[in-house]
Design a protein around this nucleic acid. Structure first.
Lengths: 112, 112
DNA sequence: ATCGTACTACGACAGTCATCGTAATACGAC
DNA sequence: GTCGTATTACGATGACTGTCGTAGTACGAT
């Protein structure tokens, strides 16, 4: 591998089903909530998921390919951030409602 | 089969991931939009999905088990309706944003 | 150039999912 | 009871998903 450019869907390519599907997983929801909380970028390694590294990579890719997050390489780190503006434009209120619902629910519901 | 009672999750058993997952399918989204549009109940046969009957049954069950719709038998018909109040209470604004997003997007995006 | 950290690619695996056809059940009308 | 409509149960199938370990690449620091 030598390509250090990550493919992202253009705004008009983002599909509602794909976004919902991407959000319908505890690990991915955790990533989204983390990014929403901190507001900016985060390296994959900052967010510790309850899964292996390779599984983590998989989840980040699903989020990116659905158009939920943006990812760029910065040195050895891969920084992720929410595509909040894009999502809000396409699906007003969706992201906020999912995030606040996820944040509010009891910890007992946080795992699959 | 002689049981004519359908199991539904109680409000407190409804889980965000399950709801998102249930909504992340074109056929099921179509059912939800139809029910939202008409406001009340509808028989399975009123909503024609682009899938076979048995697949339709499967999708209705997924929606019901996720807590998105309510189903009751009325004669030979099985009437479905949105659990809008329950969902709004749990995840404010979520359902509305999904429905309006689904309704607004171009027809070219309506199929998987 | 070597090392360590961060991340990925690949292949494997078990589990779930969407799909269907066929056969069967439930109920109302006759 | 018989018929027709509405829906389901069952089993099969192919595709996708989440999971992982191993081996590898990319990059910054030394």
């Amino acid at each position: 591998m030598s390509v250090r450019v990550l493919e992202h869907p253009r705004v008009e390519e983002i599909r509602l089903e794909a976004v919902l599907r991407a959000l319908a997983d505890p690990a991915r929801l955790e990533v989204v909530c983390f990014l929403a909380r901190t507001g900016g970028e985060a390296a994959c390694s900052e967010i510790d998921l309850a899964v292996s590294k390779s599984t983590g990579t998989h989840h980040y890719r699903v989020l990116r390919e659905a158009g939920v997050i943006n990812q760029v390489y910065r040195g050895t780190a891969k920084m992720s951030s929410l595509r909040k503006a894009d999502l809000d434009a396409l699906f007003p209120c969706l992201l906020d409602s999912v995030i606040s619902a996820a944040a509010k629910r009891p910890r007992t519901q946080r795992n699959k």
